[in-house]
Computed example of a mutant assay.
Amino acid sequence: MVRGRDPLGWLVAGDGYEVTLVEGRVAARATTGRAAGRQLKSLPKQVREHPEVERLRRLTEWLERHEAACVAQVDTWMVSSLPVPTGLVVQVWQDEAWQSVLRDLVVVGDDKDEPGFLRDVTGSGELRMVNLDGETVRLSPETVTLPHPVLLPDLEELREFAAELGVVQRVEQIHRATWTRPADPAETATEVKEFAGGRFGSRFGLAARTTSLGYRVSGGYATCAVRDAGRTTEASVWIGEPYWDGDTETGGLTWHDREGRLLRLREVGPVAWSEGMRMAAALYAGRTVEEGKNA
């Protein structure tokens, strides 16, 4: 279903009124009298409980859940830089919800050094993208990748070109905050303390902030699992003992492999490092700042 258009047509909702969806909301128009054929500013009392109105409301709720699921799935593809079958992109492109999420994301095909913005899908099943030279090219590889921005060597050029094109991404990719691992961390180092010590008035409040940002709370930790270079790595930040309702502080940031082994910083991949630091920074940003001190 396409938001902002009138794909359903107008549905009869009692005597003298019709209803439809307009930009995700139920709208009504009169079919008689001076206002006949004109969309009304609000739903008349006579139709608010009509079965057709209730059906449209349920459809709207489903559409919102569907759009959220599309965003979450594409975000997973991008964060993990997973290869996505081109045929799948072509198939879901027919759905406006999928299309609005995928359009203008940076993709790469067989040539990993030739990124471009995905703009359309042709009738023959090819992907149309605009590269950094401003040229529209067609791709039909077996799979395409939506790279994590920390893996894009031309990230700054892509950001500048996106501004020229007026690109707005539904999934945060090229403007996603990124961190690069130091080139030579200490041999035995396993923890980053840059965002430790952020004070919060309530452990429950910090846990709520964690989940609102899309991260998971596991025991006393905020966690973020990332697939990096074919392996799953979990970043974690201490947020306080479970069920403790007093004040608490953020702890250091660490990474573990799939078996739970603590990783040395030298072993952490670029995406896992960036996403772990992004989580720690986002949690720390909500700390209590004493008056007179800089945030």
Rank of each mutant, 00 (worst) to 15 (best):
L8Q: 08
L21F: 05
A36Y: 03
Q39H: 02
S42W: 13
L43F: 04
L43T: 05
L43M: 06
V47Y: 10
P51N: 14
P51S: 13
R58H: 14
T60P: 01
W62V: 09
E64F: 01
R65G: 13
H66F: 01
H66Y: 05
A69E: 12
T76P: 04
W77D: 06
L82Y: 09
P83A: 07
P85N: 04
W93I: 07
D95L: 08
L102V: 04
L102N: 02
D111Q: 15
E114S: 12
F117L: 03
G125C: 10
D133Y: 15
D133M: 13
G134D: 15
E142P: 03
V150S: 09
L152S: 07
D154V: 11
L155G: 03
E157I: 05
E164M: 13
E164C: 10
R170D: 07
R181W: 01
D184P: 00
P185D: 03
T190C: 09
K193W: 10
E194G: 03
A196F: 02
R203I: 01
F204A: 13
L206C: 03
L206D: 02
Y215V: 00
R216G: 02
R216W: 05
A225L: 09
V226W: 00
R227T: 12
S236L: 13
V237H: 04
W238F: 11
M277S: 08
R278G: 04
A281F: 11
R287T: 05
